[in-house]
Computed example of a mutant assay.
Amino acid sequence: MNTIPTVTKNLLIINVLMFLGTIVAQSYGIDLNNYLGLHFFLAGDFNAAQLITYMFMHGGFTHLFFNMFAVWMFGRILEQVWGPKRFLFYYLACGIGAGLIQELVQYIHYETVLSAYDSVNTGYSIIPMEEYLNMMTTVGASGAVYAILLGFGMLFPNQPMFVFPLPFPIKAKYFVIGYALIELFSGLANNPGDNVAHFAHLGGMIFGFILIMYWRKKDRGNGYYYN
């Protein structure tokens, strides 16, 4: 742990502690994900602070493990290049941005469903409206993680990477593009059994791209260049 940069290390610790806290709270009948997860903004349980807290909550050990593995693997490199302040800002800003995109997508879905129900005059008699709205809850650091992947791909585009199950290395830029296309396809497929916030992942990458391009322009004006 001593070799991990400060912000990356603290992000890992906070996420693990929050996950353990969630398990303990569940034993007392308290669902922290319900309180700290990101609810749909029209729901009664929504709170603006959830745009930050949701990215420190996870739906299970596997969800937590893969997100934190990516933070450790790629986040520490970005922190070493950018420094702790810029990296922390990037992580939080992209996580918030991912949440905003997810809210927008959920609103479009909500309006689509509402129109469909109105067109056949069935209303929401099967499930109360408030309960339906509060079911739209997002948890996880994946939006910020996908932004980290994008950042690594933009800073080190030609870095070879071994990706299971491919038997040969691919460049980081193709790895990132491939992940983005998979998320876009999965999001547009709108599989009813898919509970992954694909557009939140894409939202994190979009905000990450905007930030990196802004910093590149700003840093070049100050005499700094990225390869």
Rank of each mutant, 00 (worst) to 15 (best):
F152C: 03
L32N: 06
F162C: 15
F152V: 06
N222I: 11
V163F: 13
S27L: 14
E103R: 07
T3V: 10
I126E: 14
G178N: 07
M136V: 02
S119V: 04
Y28T: 10
Y225D: 13
A180L: 15
K171E: 13
Y179T: 12
R220W: 11
I127H: 07
V145I: 14
G143I: 01
Q159K: 13
N47D: 13
G187F: 03
H109V: 11
Q159T: 15
I13K: 00
L155P: 05
G99C: 09
F168K: 10
N190S: 12
V16K: 00
V105P: 05
K9C: 08
D31W: 03
R86T: 05
F207L: 14
Y117V: 09
S115Q: 10
A141D: 05
A43T: 07
N195S: 13
K85Y: 11
T22Q: 12
F69M: 11
V139A: 02
T22Y: 06
L20K: 01
L12T: 00
M1A: 06
M18W: 01
L78F: 05
F19Q: 00
N222T: 15
G123K: 05
M136N: 10
I23L: 15
T8F: 06
Y54Q: 08
H198T: 03
L42I: 10
Y28G: 14
L150T: 04
L181K: 02
A116H: 06
E111A: 12
K173W: 11
G140E: 01
M1I: 04
I210C: 13
M57V: 06
I212C: 08
A172P: 10
I182M: 14
S119E: 09
I23S: 13
G59Y: 05
V7N: 03
L211S: 08
G203F: 04
P160C: 08
K173V: 09
L42Q: 10
F156Y: 15
S119K: 09
I182S: 11
M68F: 06
Y224P: 03
L88M: 09
G75C: 04
Y35H: 11
G83K: 01
Y214N: 12
T22I: 02
F69D: 07
M129V: 14
M135R: 15
K171M: 09
L202F: 01
L188W: 04
Y107H: 14
L104M: 08
N191P: 06
L149K: 05
L188F: 14
K171N: 14
Y132K: 06
V139L: 06
G140P: 02
M57W: 02
P160Y: 08
L149T: 07
M57C: 10
L133G: 01
G187C: 06
I13C: 00
E183R: 11
I182E: 11
S119C: 05
R76C: 10
I126W: 10
I14V: 13
F69K: 14
I177P: 09
W215I: 04
L149C: 14
F185E: 07
I23A: 15
F199W: 09
L17S: 07
F74D: 01
F209H: 09
T122I: 12
L104S: 07
G204S: 10
Q159W: 11
N2K: 08
N10M: 01
I96L: 06
